[in-house]
């Protein structure tokens, strides 16, 4: 079965991203497909590579990047939400005249249409939020 995952909250503040991570892993372990993980609202903060948690804590961002790499996941950060919150890739950096970018490996920034498309193309959309 084809799943899509939506994450509405950033890392650490809420359990949403942790729950979504374990859910996504379980979906994959059961042999289902995850066609997209869409990060919206403060969820876009899951996609900054500048996160530096204490060594004895989990690294939520790296965990997504690694899971993404292992399973070729489409980790999409919403551009409108990302612009508000300062999550930037190289293209956005140039377009908006910023002096840095911070998108984590395996994530990409794209439009809200990607969420709608996920709703159309997936068989189950599962939302994790506050």
């Amino acid at each position: 079965m084809k799943f899509a995952i939506q994450i509405n909250e950033g890392p650490y503040q809420h359990q949403a991203s942790d729950s979504a991570y374990y859910f996504t892993k379980a979906v994959l372990e059961k042999g289902h497909e995850v066609m997209r993980v869409f990060f919206y609202h403060d969820g876009v903060n899951n996609g900054t590579r500048l996160t530096t948690p204490p060594q004895d804590d989990r690294n939520i961002v790296n965990r997504w990047s690694e899971l993404g790499e292992q399973h070729n996941l489409d980790l999409v950060v919403c551009v409108a939400a990302a612009q508000r919150r300062g999550i930037v890739d190289e293209g956005e950096m140039q377009r908006n005249g910023k002096d840095a970018h911070n998108i984590a490996p395996g994530f990409r920034i794209s439009g809200l249409g990607q969420l709608i498309e996920a709703g159309i193309q997936s068989e189950r959309l599962v939302v994790f939020g506050d």
Binding site: N8, H41, G111, I116
Partner: peptide
């Protein structure tokens, strides 16, 4: 909170998909 505004943005974008 920003949820109401950002969810309205999804509805507007979604309208182009003719669902």
């Amino acid at each position: 909170t920003v949820y109401a505004l950002e969810s309205l943005e999804v509805v507007l974008i979604g309208a182009a998909f003719d669902q």
